[in-house]
Write a protein that binds this DNA or RNA. Structure first.
Lengths: 348, 348
DNA sequence: CTACTCCTTTTAATCGTTTAAATATATTTC
DNA sequence: GAAATATATTTAAACGATTAAAAGGAGTAG
């Protein structure tokens, strides 16, 4: 593969001149410019970004570390980040942690070796954050996405989970529900805890008490939604509504309904976090708290690049974006507040 | 950020020794090994992979170029590739082309500058493949994924589209359908053409003629599925079955059904390419040709790395994986072959 | 004690760029 | 036309690693 030296030789100029032509760093006479460009073309030369990175000490690569790209919530985020990054001449190096902190550690350390200019991270780490601390100490910029890491001061783009959950549950209450179950996310994650908090707040706001028997601890995965959905529906004195803390679990719940022969909203109302893009032709249409995923990715990337380029004074810079509650048929039935027996009506 | 020189100084050894300790390239006495390791720890040193890449002329990075990660078909592929790559110490640099050849050109050229060791590519290019040719000439390994690029000899992992489509349509024929419409994919892509061919083959095999009025040209996007689905259902003498050439368009078709008030399989049978992971709780359950996406990604990555490491003699190495037909309720109704009038039965 | 091995460790060149500083060339000024 | 100034080009030192080849040191044989 041709190098700048060969280009210089062929154009009969110094390598500095070639570099200047390529980067436009300083004026080069028309004559030489043309000779250099010809040489580049003839040699099919492509500047070695690795060598450049070494010299200028920046790679224009960003790490993107997520739990699992296969979770439909993430691709949109990635697109947001990637589009924004690519526009400004950065590339994304992606890796999945599968929620395993060990993997996260290895990935982050490898990314640091690659000297990415910064990292976008939806962390899997609970309290064990030493690897992140040392990475930041080494001068790698870090922006937390969707989830913060406790005890570390970083820029972040977060969702207002409490608010999303609270509004959603408030809506259920307005529809007349008083016995509302929750299938929580993983409670070692802040996201999980916040959504639970929103649920509790909404109940408290409405003067309802929090019944621990209606709190089912899930882990954001399909399996837990499926299992807990079944469990809830088999109870003797079952709730009239369920609030599910993410989209993947909601699918599990629907699967459980199908197996049991339950129907929504006939037998129970359902509201959930995350728009699984299933709204269009599928039944039932779910009432959901939708997150502006693309925007979250885009903003996180912008913050990261601004920070890298020193355009950000304030630190840490934390953005809280708001979710939107979208009402659909899964919560359409109206319950009269009075008799808490089994009370179902209006199929649609 | 600490460098190898500083580590060497602190451990009072030469940089060569430090390098040997880190890479295990040659024996180092226990005494020095310990001193070096201590120094590394104390300085929070992380070897500069960029410098290493420059010297050894390989980056252990792979480019992954796809149309759009937001299409649910791709995340699985990425996971397959990433897991395989990460296991062998490679990273993935990802980028989306949005099916725009201009973007593809810029991305591939940038990846070449970054000196990725190879590229996994689901190409957006029709016949305009000069950029790929010159990239390969420059010695970048290329593996085509899902789609070949015409006129270029590369390794590839492809689906047997003809077979998938043929089996699917044959199934419809066995169910008694004779008037089967197809919503094709983009016909400038080989994938699109092959699936159409499978459709034609199946009809021909069964002694049925190909009615051009039943061939609707889509482009693999939601919009086209939605539009053509409507169009088909509004026809006076409409078909009894529709074969849709990918999952995203199928959702469009279902949406059209919903708007029109059509139901499947009551009014028409539906079979489609791609498992949109919607099988679980949603209705109707679609009969689909499922592609082994994870495996495709994994195999493509393996081939690419093997090629890079010179473990692959044969060239080009082309793998055709087979899809699986999964029968579900959307094609469950049985039509008697005889009267081609409007004939609907068994809701489920 | 010298010479020869066999390890271990160090020296120094190299990878392909960027970029300050030096040099060469062109232009202006008087 | 020489001096001063402005502009264009080149020289050469980094950046942070790897790795042949050279050097150093310990042990052994004669």
């Amino acid at each position: 593969m041709a190098t700048i030296v060969e280009v210089a030789k062929r154009a009969d100029v110094s390598i500095a001149t070639v570099s200047n032509v390529i980067r436009g760093t300083r004026r080069v006479s028309q004559k030489l410019t043309e000779r250099v460009q010809a040489a580049i073309r003839e040699l099919n030369y492509s500047p070695n970004e690795i060598a450049r990175s070494l010299k200028v000490r920046q790679t224009r690569m960003l790490g993107m570390v997520l739990p699992d790209i296969t979770n439909p919530f993430f691709p949109e985020i990635i697109r947001g980040a990637e589009d924004t990054a690519f526009e400004r001449g950065y590339f994304l190096v992606t890796a999945n942690t599968d929620e395993q902190i060990g993997r996260e550690r290895r990935i982050v350390s490898a990314l640091r070796s690659y000297r990415v200019d910064g990292v976008l991270l939806a962390s899997a780490s609970g309290k064990d954050t030493a690897h992140l601390k040392s990475t930041m100490d080494a001068g790698v910029a870090l922006v937390c996405l969707d989830r913060t890491v406790p005890g570390i001061k970083t820029d972040a783009v977060l969702l207002d989970n409490v608010r999303g959950a609270r509004e959603c549950v408030r809506h259920l209450i307005q529809k007349g529900h008083t016995r509302i179950a929750i299938i929580t996310g993983a409670l070692n994650l802040q996201t999980g805890r916040e959504r639970l908090r929103g649920y509790e707040d909404a109940l408290t706001d409405a003067g309802l008490s929090i019944d621990p028997k209606l709190v089912f601890e899930g882990d954001f995965r399909y399996e837990s939604g499926h299992r807990l959905g079944k469990q809830i529906m088999k109870q003797t004195n079952r709730p009239t509504a369920i609030f599910v803390c993410n989209g993947v679990m909601a699918i599990g719940v629907l699967k459980a309904f199908e197996e049991i022969g339950a129907e929504c909203p006939r037998d129970v109302a359902l509201a959930t976090f995350d728009d699984m893009k299933l709204d269009s032709p599928f039944h039932p249409h779910l009432t959901t708290v939708v997150q502006p995923s693309y925007e979250m990715g885009a903003r996180a990337a912008t913050i990261l690049m601004d920070r890298i380029e020193g355009k950000l004074k304030k630190a840490p810079f934390i953005v809280r974006v708001s979710p939107t509650l979208i009402l659909r048929e899964s919560t359409e039935a109206y319950l009269h507040p009075a008799p808490p027996g089994k009370d179902h009506r209006n199929r649609r």
